[in-house]
Design a binder for these strands. Sequence first.
DNA 1: ACCTGAACACCGTTCAAGT
DNA 2: ACCTGAACACCGTTCAAGT
Lengths: 192, 192
Amino acid sequence: MHRRADVIAAALDILAEVGLPDLTMRRLGATLGVQQSAIYHHFANKQLLLGAVADEIVARGPHSSIEPDAPWPQRVRLACTDVHAAVLAYADGADVVMSMFAFGLGGQAAYDRLRSELRPSGLDEAVTASAARTLLHYVYGHAFDIQTRAQAARVGAIDPDSPEDDFAIGLTFVIDGIAGRANALGPAPSRE
Amino acid sequence: MHRRADVIAAALDILAEVGLPDLTMRRLGATLGVQQSAIYHHFANKQLLLGAVADEIVARGPHSSIEPDAPWPQRVRLACTDVHAAVLAYADGADVVMSMFAFGLGGQAAYDRLRSELRPSGLDEAVTASAARTLLHYVYGHAFDIQTRAQAARVGAIDPDSPEDDFAIGLTFVIDGIAGRANALGPAPSRE
DNA sequence: ACCTGAACACCGTTCAAGT
DNA sequence: ACCTGAACACCGTTCAAGT
């Protein structure tokens, strides 16, 4: 009857409508029309299910394309805004993707794309990996902040208060810092 | 008998010994020698307790001093390594502090210190605030990653794999990006 | 292979009642 | 002011048993 993909889709529906605290095995079973225990036939535990959900959130997000000869900082920026938009599309999406990535259970696609886009920078592989993780930490951290603040505002604990271009400003800081180091050791015009 | 500070201290003990999932009201009550329900006389709910715990984690962390005439990027870097060390000192410290900061319930001290250290950059207030948040997102995101990976490694789900100087590399990217923008509009020698 | 039904060992929170 | 004792409405997970 049901396949793994059905369970993941139902989980995303719940996430979109309510949020992570309401994504319970009981509610998931009710959405699928089965007992809660039936889900354990498809996923050994909830954590592994959330890992698959994290992958799907990133996969369903935008994958903007750009001229192949565009400078790499511009391509990196596009990759970051894509991931940012992807996790913002579902309530607590940043929480799920960030946690699962750190646990090694999902969100690997975003990390791989960033490393790939950073390759033309000329930075060695170890520094490139650090740069990709720095970008991810910022993107996830910013999205988590937005989503948590929205939830806090809904409970009336806080005023949202975050400016419109906040994400873009911070992203420019990080990318400029990476580009600055890349320019310091080779030719790769990115600004000016 | 017990005061608010006793409850917070007991919560930090539990965090240091085990971790956030074991920081239950029942265990907290047992540590304090009271019923779980007694804690609700000091904190209206668990979330407000965690907010106070987050403040205490930051307060107990290092507060490194430096020559007052040191360049501001150096002072900002020190503030970041202080906060990083503070949250790493307790299991799931990054998770608690990050969540409570986003919810507006704690960790305000770190944000205020960063904004203060960034003032000499000459950036206007809105950009300075964005810069401070960018740094916090990176610091918390990185620490969260480390602590979650450590937990995953304990369960045997992943290899730790993160290089030693990873935090320093990413921090340089972010600070250089901020300094680059500051230098573009006024005199403030930070590098070279 | 896929699911049911019932249980187990937990949670956070509430509340009358005590001192 | 501070705490007890007991309950309420939940959790994730397991497991024998069905088809």
